[in-house]
Write a protein that binds this DNA or RNA. Structure first.
Lengths: 353, 353
DNA sequence: GTGAAAGCGCTAACAA
DNA sequence: TTGTTAGCGCTTTCAC
């Protein structure tokens, strides 16, 4: 392979327009102190020659790299990819993140990092040193990983922590898990349910706790009991199955169950079927995440939509703002989630009501 | 934001090891002409200081960028992302491509380009000039787009055309669509089916035609008629619905249908239900792609698995090999697909058999 | 086998 | 408002 050099450089443009390199640079970067006429002339040459600045060279000379790193958990992401169950977290991140990046002339680079690895810092450093990104987006469970947060804080690089409430280095960006759980719970209460079970997600994710909190809060405000109605899960189908079985075999079984993700809701549907319960007539189910599978279940699942695309998009905006030297927002940024109504919720059965 | 400079550079390493810059560079790039002892000393300094070479600087001085661009069709990709139907083409590409890249110290950058846009060249040029990738992976329908292929050929950059048979610039890499269609058809014939309908995909994709060819070939070799059994679709659910309805309302309806993708197979299932036909007892269905939804249909779909991850992985290998100056393979590289058996195929109904 | 010098494309700092 | 100079971190010559 022959070595490739930039075909058209700033030099060609400068020569063509009959100006200095610096003037071209100013035009590229939209800097002030260039006369309109000059600017136009340079722009004409740029267009004529099809010039595009080299990110490498820009980065080299100490300017921006126009690269934003989106970091996800390696193990979980690869497991999801291999499972092919339709989990589309990555797709939604790209949808929101890439498009927003493109709007601002940035590019999003997707990276996988091990949460548990004792080389986290080395992995991160490698990515940062190699790519020199202008900002980093952290997703759960990395967002609250003290080691990662501390390391990034020391790198003097703007970063957003998606799904985090904690103060500290970096910009936290919440998807309002507690509020969503409250919304789902109130929705069920509004339809007459009083015994509402909850299947929690993995402890490794802070959002699991927040979702439980929201459920508890909504139950409390309606003076409804929660005892024995909380079951631990870990987001896996198997854990959802176990949890659902325990809940549905309670002497006084719940008339509705909220599952902390779609897989566990799917398992709940299956257990209900197995026990001869019809959804939604005998049992109502609400799930979290709203991944593609909600369309395909029998009945389709009413679900809390995790606004991943919107969140990633906002994260990019926050990073670009930070890049420009703007202050980080004083308040925690919250992207709220909607409840999408489908077919898995009905009033509780008359016999129990 | 303060300007960030590389924390540890080749200079620091050179100073620490007491050698010249050049020697460090040689060690980094694993070049010959360095004594083992020297190499070891330098490597020790690299590890100690946590040095990682800057891709920007490497690229600047005319070496590789260690970046591989994966290009997908913007319109279709975004539509899939928004539809949230679980299409996981992108995920599978990342799975295969990113992991293989990581193995070789490369990174995969995912880009979207408009097929129809008259600015294709400009968009491509922008990506290439900005990123200076070492290679490009084209996916359908870009793989056989003459404008794109011609443009890339002129850029002196290795590129792979996934899902392409055509000779010419770039390295074609086939997923054996014709063979897969033949496999699916033979599989049905083996189970006793004689009237096998086929729903084709969009003309915009060459693979649509190859799948039809495979079906035709398998039918021909068994001396089975194909007349009236081929219906056009465009990969959309709606088109699948129309096609399935026409096929199933034929005076002599098919006992099996092969749909060129999962969405159209899903539609076929729905039409069958609507017409009072049970799958698989009255009608067998095989779909293409094996996206996540195949698990969730009633019954789960027997499907041809498109080996996207394996193909992306191979594409990366081909590019890295080309980068090293190796000859492109003389033969067309073919990644073959498997048939995954689930619940949508049975022998034809006795009344027809 | 190792080192010194030049230059990649661009921008920051300064000068005019 | 515009141009000049130096240097970013690295690799490629070309000496030694």
């Amino acid at each position: 392979m022959a070595r490739r050099r930039q075909a058209v450089t700033i030099k060609h443009v400068a020569a063509d327009a009959g100006v200095s390199l610096q003037t071209v640079s100013r035009v590229i970067n939209n800097e002030p102190n260039v006369r309109a006429e000059m600017k136009q002339r340079v722009q004409a040459s740029i267009d004529k020659l099809g010039y595009v600045p080299s990110i490498a060279a820009q980065r080299m000379s100490g300017s921006r790299s126009y690269l934003i790193l989106a970091i996800n958990d390696r193990e979980r992401t690869i497991a999801d990819w291999r499972a092919r169950q339709g989990t589309d977290w990555v797709d939604q991140m790209l949808l929101g993140g890439m498009l927003k990046c493109a709007e601002h002339g940035y590019r999003m680079i997707f990276e996988l990092i091990d949460t548990h690895d004792d080389h986290v810092e080395r992995e991160l450093l490698a990515a940062i040193a190699a790519l020199q990104p202008d900002g980093i987006i952290l997703t759960p469970p990395h967002s609250d990983n003290p080691q990662i947060v501390a390391f990034l804080a020391g790198q003097n690089i703007p970063f957003v922590r998606i799904g985090s409430h904690e103060d500290g280095a970096g910009i936290p960006l919440s998807m309002d898990d507690e509020g969503s759980a409250r919304t789902a719970t109130r929705y069920l209460i509004g339809r007459g349910h009083a015994r509402i079970g909850f299947i929690a997600g993995s402890d490794e994710y802070n959002l699991s706790g927040w979702r439980v909190d929201g459920w508890r809060a909504a139950m409390a405000e309606a003076n409804l009991p929660t005892e024995a109605l909380l079951e631990a899960g870990d987001f896996s189908y198997a854990s959802g199955e176990r949890a659902a079985r325990r809940l549905l075999q309670l002497p006084q079984r719940p008339t509705a169950i909220i599952a902390s993700n779609d897989q566990m809701a799917l398992a709940t549907l299956e257990v209900a079927r197995d026990l001869g319960l019809t959804v939604p007539d005998d049992l109502s189910v609400i799930s979290f995440d709203n991944t593609p599978l909600v369309h395909f279940t029998q009945p389709p699942l009413t679900a809390i939509d995790q606004p991943i695309a919107a969140t990633a998009s906002r994260a990019v905006e926050l990073i670009i703002a930070a890049q420009k030297g703007e202050e980080r927002p004083a308040e925690l940024t919250v992207i709220s989630a909607d409840l999408v109504e489908r077919g898995s919720v009905a009033p509780p059965p008359a016999s129990i009501r």
